[in-house]
């Protein structure tokens, strides 16, 4: 098993004819992902990368039976693209696009809440279940099938961690990049629960960073709902203090956004904390050897 995607995933690529969409769709196909079609308004009826292109997601889903979509649509139109795929009934939407206005995401997440569509991202590298399916930008060959789950807010830092794992011959069940935006479609806490329920995941690596309170929420979940060990790293201990104006940000989150506060919360929640980002792989190896939490 794995979470969210596997060899049965039927993927639709929104924005398949664009430069990045095309490049990465091809990479996913080469990895073995079952891409069943793409959308590009105005190019319906054509064929791109050997798969049919549709004008609308609704049509594409009806014709191909797609259950997942990956979005490469430019930021001004990306919120619309997410809503279109949710409306078409897809169970998983992975939005790669970065720089989407926060107000657009407020509306999107309100629309999605309580529905059957899970959103990963935006501003994320996507996800991969090694050896089964890749729905994202990550280089497939740095991964290896196995029993460690990875969930991260950062794209490239995840690649770094995965390559450390693979170099130590530690494979991964699924690696999920939830994205770097202030309000992501899926949270650490939600993905942790999916890993907890996955019979083929033994240890989870959580890669957090400064800002927001997602890590604190994750710490609560680890404490109350998880039996599997979680190895955590929080980036930004030495980050320059962000400049800010006004007081509202501090009123709503206080000091919770700092790396120190997040590390404290995660440690209290029972996670194994790694200080050195170059040693995350080794810490996972130790956690695997130790077994339970």
């Amino acid at each position: 098993m794995s979470i969210l995607i596997d060899e049965k995933t039927r993927l639709l690529v929104q924005g398949i004819t664009g430069g990045e969409g095309s490049f990465h769709a091809q990479r996913c196909m080469e990895y073995g992902t079952k891409i069943v079609g793409g959308t590009s308004p105005g190019k319906g009826g054509t064929v791109h990368l050997g798969v049919p292109v549709f004008n609308t997601v609704d049509r594409a889903v009806k014709e191909t039976g797609a259950d997942t979509s990956m979005i490469f649509v430019p930021a001004p139109f990306a919120a619309d693209a997410i809503l279109e795929s949710a409306d078409a009934g897809l169970s998983l939407v992975v939005c790669i696009t970065e720089f989407i206005p926060t107000a657009d995401m407020v509306t999107v997440l309100r629309y999605l809440s309580g529905g059957k569509t899970r959103l990963i991202g935006p501003n994320c590298p996507g996800l991969i279940s090694p050896g089964k399916s890749k729905v994202g930008l990550m280089a497939g060959d740095i991964h290896k099938p196995g029993r460690v789950g990875v969930v991260s807010r950062s794209g490239t830092l995840t690649y770094e961690v995965v390559s450390q794992l693979t170099a130590l011959d530690i494979g991964q069940s699924t690696c999920v990049g939830i994205g770097g935006d202030p309000i992501p479609g899926s949270t650490f806490a939600e993905i942790l629960m999916l890993f907890e329920q996955d019979t083929e995941t033994d240890v989870v690596v959580l890669i957090g960073e400064i800002g927001g309170t997602l890590e604190q929420d994750a710490a609560e979940t680890i404490k109350n709902n998880m039996s599997k060990p979680v190895v955590a790293f929080v980036a930004g201990n030495t980050a320059p203090p962000g400049r800010r104006m006004g007081h509202a940000g501090a009123i709503i989150s206080g000091a919770a956004g700092t790396a120190g506060e997040k590390i404290r919360a995660l440690r209290e929640g029972g996670a194994v904390i790694v200080e050195n980002p170059a040693r995350i792989g080794r810490s996972v190896a130790e956690a695997l050897a130790k077994g339970s939490k």
């Binding site: 991260s152 490239t156 690649y159 770094e160 930004g236 980002p277």
Partner: peptide, 11 residues
Amino acid sequence: GAGLAMSVLDL
């Protein structure tokens, strides 16, 4: 990437 950039500073 911002996350990797921050970890490089940390490291």
